[in-house]
Amino acid sequence: MNYSFLRPILRPARMALLIGTLALAACSQGGLNGDDVGAGASGIGSGGAGDPTSPAYFNSVVGDRVLFAVDQSTISSSAQVVLAGQAQWLLANPEFTALIEGHADEQGTREYNLALGARRAASVREYLVSQGVPDSRLRTISYGKERPLQICSNEACYSQNRRSVTVISAGAGV
């Protein structure tokens, strides 16, 4: 496979738009899952999404999540782009660690989906390690189908729920 490194380029106008979107998304969730409790989602000032060394920047500009096909844990080519960016950010910000959450949609039995979520999280972890991120800075957890991001019962929501989310937190390697 050919992994390309894409360094995100800051464009002030685009950033403003992203911050607005992020705030909206945070309002609509209100959940316990890592989708919105990732460190520092405020997005304003130092430590906000305008600061390339902030988790908020990671979440909104680099992209904290990738999506998966039904019952699959393969990293798609578009996911590879996002994960390459995640790896690059992690390498540039060694004071942070990451918890990779694996999730599944509701079309599956509970325990199988736990295992499937673990598979997805592990795929992401392997990819980040292949990009040079020390394994000791990464941990994984599966939520199976327990923490859907979208709650409708059709593919529009399911496709958003079959995801991994890389949750950044402060602290050097494990």
């Binding site: 844990s73 736990l114 295992a115 673990a118 598979r119 997805r120 999280a121 592990a122 994984t140």
Partner: peptide, 9 residues
């Protein structure tokens, strides 16, 4: 029980 290790259960 099931035990998961490195994504494999």
């Amino acid at each position: 029980l099931s035990l998961e290790d490195g994504g494999n259960t």
